[in-house]
Structure formats: structure tokens, C-alpha cells
Design a protein around this nucleic acid. Structure first.
Lengths: 348, 348
DNA sequence: CTGAAAGCGCTAACAT
DNA sequence: ATGTTAGCGCTTTCAG
């Protein structure tokens, strides 16, 4: 009860108590090098008895490794292009995987206008590797990534690719997702399928659009670029496109919509409902992400399920591997499968 | 282009180039102690020229401070008692505030069955302070917190209090929230208001129940413990209570329900809808949290808005203060105001 | 299998 | 205002 005076030179005491050198204490505690079983036991016991725990600070310093995996993500000020669903699923995957390897997660929030000093995090040795969420195809992001690569830092993007740039990436097969969605809608008899996309700075916007085009063309129906609207992945932008969509539906120029994420789909669904148009009756609607919200709407939203949790796991284990076996392999690109989840909103 | 060989003894070089000692370099870079403006400039220039950045590892070690704020939170394996809304709002608040002080966030996920070795994180010096989310009133949690306190580590709970235990806490006025909700329902003419609570291991479950009771009693209507159901904060548990609630509503034994969170409220709303009972028509419904989902349901859900983002900010700034001025003040308890947001589900 | 000793890069007295 | 120096606590060669 009164041994709370946290000793400082505890390690020395442990060594003494066990009758060995500090070096041996280190060997035992880290399980490295040959150590006689008996010595090992003595040290372990001494450590436990003295309630000794090594300082992570000193270890990191001596090893020149922070033991931290950086997770860079956009700061969500109330609302954001990323649904919290996306965010928490990926984070859970990362957390689960990192934990198993004893790696800690350092969260790095990136404020909107701020310069992307990712490389700085490595130079200061705050992190040993990192996973980047929400990167976009814009110069500031791209340059920062190039810099990371140039300096040889291990990093991995989730859900974002750069044309012709070989960055490590874990992505989902968004193209296939909207391909499937489009085929599904055509099977339901839809003839004029519109596409409500997100900003093209996100590679998955492009992927999704591509799948939609391919499905149409495969069916012998030429892609009509006029049938594409662009929002910003917020519910508001979906809601706001209801005005034009209502008109299109009423005049028979549209009988279905694929929205590039659930938030926009939900906004659109609500906006159209206010105008008397019901998803699953007056038009068919498909979203992307299969977020929690897809189950809450009325009618429930057909959506494309993306394995975000798994993406987090995958990216993390790849990074951890890269840290243990620094074999300079070529950049990898994992593409996880998606799955169309059909609900009432697309059943006309 | 070829100066990529990251020097190791860069600091020494900086000192030389600036014609000063390493100590002065340190002073300049940290902005401490008196330094002649001219020297300062010389050093800064030398540092920039040599592209020098101090090693956080070495700094932390020398200062004996990790510079990390620990954030302990439950690992969300797919779904959890915490809505992702709650989770991401609080995290955003923490991230925003910590960032401004140059503190980093170390995420510590706590797996379900696992022992709570919070104190360990301090002993190993991985964190300087921490914020704990999702703690419950159960022995394993309580003991871990007591240990933290006994060892004098700065920590703060969000949304959880322990009777008679003076832990630092940032909470919301949940009692007032359900008080207001109850009054609101009575004003709508509801006479038999039920309460669907969450597990009592969460202090806010108790707070909410208390507000409900107080409102009833203030109105001269005695509290009837039979009108309380208990779920586990999941949508499923709300959905499952629809069976019994449907019967109660049909037989006139219930005309309103307050659910202790939105997820349960939404589950209940859906379950009752399947049984032909519509919120806002056949009965009144109020949830808690004012999550995104509250705006998605049909009808939209009346709910109690809780300033989760602000709670994260508040807890963080308190912890950061505690680190800079280690004045041992008494444990604090902040109680943030909540706000009833009336939507269609409660307008009978 | 174990001990001795040399750092890891920076900070913070203490001296000047 | 600046230089000197002694660590911070651990890991890791290198000997033995």
C-alpha cells in the first residue's frame, strides 16, 4: 500500500534482485537472445515483485521506433463527406488489427485547409507507418503522397487511387458495385437510369461511374452523359437534386437513380418524397455503402455493401508486414469485393 | 535531390553551421530561455537549410513526457452499444481540441472481455493523460478507475458517473433531457407514458429515468415502475420490445414512449410500424441523442440533442490544463445542457 | 549464456 | 545570452 513511490531506477533494482545484469533483464523482457530458463524465471519474478514495467519512451528511443501506426483522417466538424459509418467501420478494423500486433494508433486529424505534412510525421519519428483516409486527387494531397514515397515511408491509402501512381492502396470494387446495381435496375425494367455521382477528386466516384457505363453498354444501351448529376456526398446535395429529378421522373425521362453513396441517396429519397414521389413505386433508387441509414429509410434503401471494416484490417496488416520485413516489394493494390443488398427502394 | 540520406547527427551540424552550441539550438527550437534575436535567426536558417527536424522520440524521452493523450474506447465489432454518431462526434471534439495544443491522440481500443489495464498505459509512459469513453458501473471498470486515481494519473470520463466517486467527468444533463421530454409529451395530452431504458450500468440510464420520474411527479402523476422496460441500447432491443408495446398501445395502457437512445427508439418505431402502429398518430415517441438517424425515420423522430462534440472538447481541454498546471484541484464534473428537438414522432 | 559499455538525440541544470 | 555537461532508461554490439 505504501510502495507507491514509483521508483525510477527500478530496472537496476530488478537486475540486482535477480542477480544479473541490466542487459539480461532486457533480454528476458523482450524474449530475445539465448537465456537460461532459470535466469529467465529469476528475472521475471524480480520484475513482478518490484512491479517493474519498462518505459515505452526509453524503448522507443533506444530502438528508434515509435511503435505507432499513424491514421490520418479528415476532421469531421459536425458533418462531412464521410459518413460516420464509413469512418467508424474502418477505424474499428484498423484498431482491431493493430492491437493484435502491439502497435499503437496515433490519430492525426487533418483540418480542411491545412498543408499535408505527412512526411513530417515520419521525420520526427512520431509514426513508423501510416494509413491515410479521405485522400483526394488534388495537388496538395498528391504531392504529399509523392513525398512520402520519395522518402521511402511505408503508407497505405484506403479507398483512393491515383491514376498511374503506384501507391499502396486498399480499395473496394466500386466499379463492379455500380455495374451490378445497374444490371439489377435494368432487370427491374428500368430504362432511364440516372447516376448521382460524387466529386471526381475521389477515385471511387470515377470507378462507380465506370461500372454504370459498362453495364449500360453491355446491355447495348449507350451511355448518356446527360444522365449524370454531381453532388458532394452530403445528404443535402442529394436532397437538393430532388428538384430536377422530380421533374425528370414526372416527364418520363428518368425511372431510376443510382446515388454514389447512401447519404445522397437518402437525401434524394426524402426530397422526392416531399414532392410525392416514392422510391420503389414511382422510381427505383440504389445507394452505395450500405450504411446503417439504409435500413432506416422508408422504404428501406437498396445499397451496395462495402467491407470497410475489412479494408481497415487489410491496410493495417499490410503496413505491419511492411515494417517487419522491409522487403521492397512493388506497391500493392487490394480490391475488396462489394455486394448489392436489395431492399424495397429499387423494386418497382 | 540527392540529399535524401537522412543524416543522423544533423543537430550537431545545425549547431556548427549556426556557430552555436547544441543547447542553443534546443532553446531556439523550443522557444525557451533568452536568445538573442540574431542567434535565433541564424539557428532557424541553419535548421531549415539542413532540413533538420528534432526527433520526437528523443524529445519525449528527455522530457519524460509522451505528449500523447490517450483515448480509451470500446472496440466496435460491427455494432455496438454506442452509435457511431456518438463515437465520431466525441472523437472529433477531442481531436480538434488536442490538435490545437500540439498533443497527439493515442487510440486505445478496449476489447470486450479484456482486463482494463489503464494504469499500465501511464506506467509505461505511453500517455500523459486520458479520456475514457464507454465506461460502465461494473467492478472491472470501477477498480481500474480507482487505480488510476490512486496513482494520481489525470483522466476524465465522458458520459459516465459513479455514485460517490469523485472522478473527473464530462457529462450531459440527461436528467433534464428526459424531464423535458416527459413534460412535452404530457403537454401533447399523453397520459400513459412509458420509458424504454438502457442498462443501469450506464449512469445516464439512471439519470434519464430520474428525469422522467420527476416530471411525472411534478405533474402530480405518480411514477409507475411497471411502465419501464429495459433494452440494451441496440436497435434490435428496441425492435423486440415492439411486441409488448403494441399490445399496450392497443389496449390503451400506453400512449407514449421515451426511449433512452435513438437506436432503440428507431427499432421500436419500425417494429410498431410493422404492427400497424404509427408514431405521431397512434402513439408518441421520443428518443435520445438526436443522431443522424432521427432525421431519417418516417416519421422523423423527436429526440434529445446532446452536445457530444462539445463534450469531447471540454474533456480534452480539462485534461490538457491538468497537464500544464498540476494544481491538484478537486475532481470536476461538467454537465452540459441538452435540448429537446421536436419532430413528428411525438406530435399526436 | 551473460556482462560491460557505448550510445540513441535531446533537455535542463549549472556555469560563465 | 550562451556553452558545458550530465543524464533520461533501454537496446545492442562486442567480449568473454
Amino acid at each position: 500500500m505504501d510502495d507507491l513511490e514509483e521508483g525510477l531506477i527500478r530496472r537496476k533494482a530488478v537486475a540486482q534482485l535477480a542477480g544479473v545484469s541490466e542487459a539480461t533483464v532486457s533480454r528476458v523482457l523482450n524474449g530475445v537472445g539465448p537465456v537460461k530458463e532459470e535466469t529467465r524465471k529469476r528475472v521475471m519474478e524480480a520484475a513482478k515483485q518490484l512491479n517493474y514495467v519498462p518505459s515505452a519512451l526509453a524503448q522507443q528511443f533506444a530502438r528508434q521506433k515509435s511503435g505507432n501506426l499513424g491514421v490520418i483522417l479528415p476532421l469531421l466538424p459536425k458533418v462531412n463527406v464521410f459518413s460516420t459509418y464509413y469512418f467508424s467501420e474502418i477505424l474499428s478494423g484498423i484498431g482491431h488489427t493493430a492491437k493484435q500486433s502491439g502497435y499503437d494508433l496515433l490519430m492525426l486529424f487533418r483540418e480542411p485547409g491545412e498543408p499535408r505534412e505527412y512526411a513530417h510525421l515520419f521525420r520526427t519519428q512520431k509514426i513508423d507507418a501510416c494509413i491515410i483516409l479521405g485522400a483526394q486527387n488534388i495537388p496538395s494531397d498528391y504531392d504529399a503522397l509523392k513525398e512520402l514515397q520519395r522518402e521511402g515511408h511505408p503508407f497505405c491509402l484506403i479507398n483512393q487511387q491515383y491514376e498511374g501512381a503506384p501507391f499502396n492502396t486498399v480499395d473496394a470494387d466500386h466499379r463492379m458495385g455500380s455495374y451490378d446495381a445497374t444490371v439489377h435496375l435494368m432487370k427491374q425494367g428500368c430504362q432511364r437510369i440516372w447516376f448521382l455521382n460524387g466529386p471526381s477528386a475521389f477515385s471511387n466516384s470515377l470507378d462507380r461511374l465506370e461500372g454504370y457505363c459498362q453495364a449500360l453498354e453491355t446491355a447495348g444501351e449507350p451511355f448518356d452523359p446527360n444522365r449524370v448529376l454531381v453532388g458532394n456526398y452530403s445528404r443535402k446535395s442529394g436532397y437538393e437534386s430532388a428538384d430536377i429529378m422530380a421533374e425528370l421522373i414526372r416527364t418520363g425521362q428518368a425511372d431510376a437513380v443510382i446515388a454514389a453513396n447512401d447519404r445522397m441517396a437518402i437525401g434524394l429519397l426524402q426530397g422526392l418524397k416531399e414532392r410525392g414521389l416514392i422510391a420503389g413505386e414511382d422510381y427505383a433508387l440504389v445507394g452505395c455503402d450500405d450504411s446503417d441509414g439504409a435500413r432506416l429509410t422508408d422504404p428501406p434503401l437498396t445499397s451496395i455493401a462495402v467491407p470497410f471494416y475489412e479494408a481497415g484490417c487489410e491496410a493495417t496488416s499490410r503496413m505491419l508486414e511492411a515494417l517487419t520485413e522491409p522487403v521492397l516489394t512493388a506497391p500493392f493494390t487490394a480490391k475488396l469485393p462489394v455486394r448489392l443488398v436489395v431492399r424495397a427502394s429499387s423494386q418497382v
